[in-house]
């Protein structure tokens, strides 16, 4: 029998995952800029300091390199740190500690030391954050061996994947699409905001459960084409497919690395057509990896060239936010391109 559920938005689901783990395991510590007394600029850690103590959930100096650095040391020393980087755009001072240290400690010491840490950080646009509060840097991390990169698209997955991340014995980068914190977003900023309360994925089980890595969520089933998407773009894909009048097999690639290539190739072999979506810039984006893998695994099943729909190869502009964002129109054009070819 499944556990009782509670309606949560993504912020509450993330907070609940942290609360569950902090309650179960005294080795779990949560820290970052403004996460303590205040509870985080997006409120993901609200109440955790009050409930679990000052020493379990605390503020750090404005120092992303320092935040990740102490997380590496704490994790090597047996704790399960969960560090928050306030925006993914701020993560670069911590990049050396992530890419050269957290991701390499197990390998270079041959398992003598490990770094089972989790780094949470909001990604993506849709809140008029401009160049410094909107980036989607996932490809800079999926290129790093030794690191796992995860991105949920809904409250249910967010909680289960975050608990899995904290329990994982390898370092995990946990990307949170900030536009989805309060509700699913179909890519049209002019429609009234929708809350998670109206969606079944906003019904989140109480207590402990995990969503395994190296899996996809079959978001919708269809035979016309396969759409590979993750984060916010899963919802845009669903909207665009409906408007384009196609039956799409939409796969939510919630685990970018490790990747469930079996599920992806099964779907593409079924549909023979593949559209790849991401909000991040195009060149050397994760879509390039997906496209290459689909070509390698499914070439003889493809009836049309693989198409990528992405953000432009520009910084994320402010006033032109919705011109940059790969919204329903751009996705529909992509769908047509895939469907009309071959």
């Amino acid at each position: 029998m499944s556990a009782p559920t509670r309606q949560m938005n993504m912020i509450e689901a993330i907070r609940d995952a942290l609360d569950v783990k902090m309650s179960q395991d005294p080795d779990v510590l949560v820290f970052g800029e403004d996460v303590g007394y205040f509870g985080g600029v997006f409120r993901c850690t609200a109440g955790l300091q009050e409930k679990h103590g000052l020493h379990r959930c605390f503020d750090t100096p404005i120092s992303e390199g320092g935040i990740v650095g102490i997380a590496v040391g704490m994790a090597a020393n047996g704790l399960r740190p969960v560090a928050e980087i306030q925006f993914a755009d701020y993560i670069y001072p911590g990049y050396d500690q992530i890419a050269s240290e957290a991701a390499r400690l197990r390998y270079r010491s041959n398992g003598d030391f490990t770094a089972p840490l989790t780094i949470r950080t909001p990604v993506g646009g849709g809140i008029f954050g401009g160049t410094t509060h909107s980036q989607s840097p996932e490809a800079l991390f999926t290129h790093i061996s030794g690191l796992k990169t995860i991105i949920p698209s809904n409250p249910y997955d967010a909680k289960g994947l975050l608990i899995q991340a904290i329990e994982d014995n390898d370092p995990v980068l946990f990307l949170e699409p900030k536009r989805l914190y309060n509700g699913p977003f179909d890519g049209d900023p002019h429609k009234p905001a929708v809350s998670w309360a109206k969606h079944e994925l906003g019904q989140v089980p109480e207590g402990h459960y995990t969503v395994p890595f190296e899996t996809v969520r079959q978001f919708s089933e269809g035979d016309d084409l396969t759409i590979l998407a993750y984060g916010t773009m899963v919802w845009v894909a669903e909207n665009a497919a409906r408007e384009a009048g196609v039956n799409a097999d939409i796969l939510d690639i919630r685990s970018l690395l490790p990747l469930d290539i079996d599920a992806i190739s099964a779907s593409v072999k079924k549909t023979g057509r593949c559209l790849i979506l991401h909000e991040a810039t195009r060149t050397s984006g994760f879509g390039a990896e997906l496209s290459a893998q689909v070509a390698e695994h499914c070439f003889f099943s493809l009836e049309a060239p693989i198409v990528r729909v992405t953000g432009w190869d520009t910084p994320y502009p402010h006033a032109q936010e919705w011109a940059f964002f790969p919204g329903p129109k751009r996705v529909i054009n992509g769908i047509r391109k895939v469907m009309d070819a071959g």
Binding site: G65, G69, I70, V72, L79, R104, R108, S109, F113
Partner: peptide, 28 residues
């Protein structure tokens, strides 16, 4: 790298161990 002798894995990227050691001490 000799954990059994209290000797942390040495990195070739200089300086990175400084803040990690502080994190280790915070955990202690």
């Amino acid at each position: 790298s000799f954990k059994k002798h209290g000797f942390f894995s040495i990195s070739g990227n200089l300086g990175t161990q400084l803040i990690q050691g502080v994190g280790w001490a915070m955990a202690n």
